[in-house]
Amino acid sequence: MQRTVDFKLPHFFNYPPYFTLQPVRETREKQVQLWKELILDYCRSQKMYIISLEEDFPLFSNPKIERSLSYEAKEVFLAALVSEGRAEWIDKNHKKCLVLWLRIQDWANYILDFVKENGLEVTTIEDIRSGIETHGTELAGIDRGVLMRALRLLEQKGKAVIFKGSSADDEGVKFSV
């Protein structure tokens, strides 16, 4: 995996002690806060949804200063995101994490705006993920699970209806905007 150029890493990423879990409470709180923000910002800029603790992830090591996060540290930072509703463990063993850089509610609103702007009252799930209109928006390549949850939320609110499309593997959505 490689880091894309257009993401500016914060100063603390180059300061070695931020890669060791701090024992003093106040210092730890600050450290966790900075990492939480960094993980969300980074995933958003790279449109990443899943972080696996057991695989390499560009944010969790900094070759320039020869430091990397311990397994425990990664778990602490992700757990902090989970406790705030900004991430979810997707397995029982807490090895994989779904990062919600937009909350489901925010995704739902984003989709509604997107649909209004582009006049896409009736469309398909796949088109939302990779249609022409999607290019350059947050929706490009959105995690299917996240998208479905946002759409179901809209369905609950009576703002969308999901229906079976013509082909078996695609579903359509009708929005009432």
Partner: peptide
């Protein structure tokens, strides 16, 4: 100094020696 929040520990160097950093 650590308790006062003036220092941060760093156990990540490959020589295994703990470093105390002072922001």
């Amino acid at each position: 100094l650590l308790k006062e929040g003036l220092a941060m520990i760093d156990d990540g160097h490959r020589d295994g020696k703990r470093r105390y950093w002072f922001p």
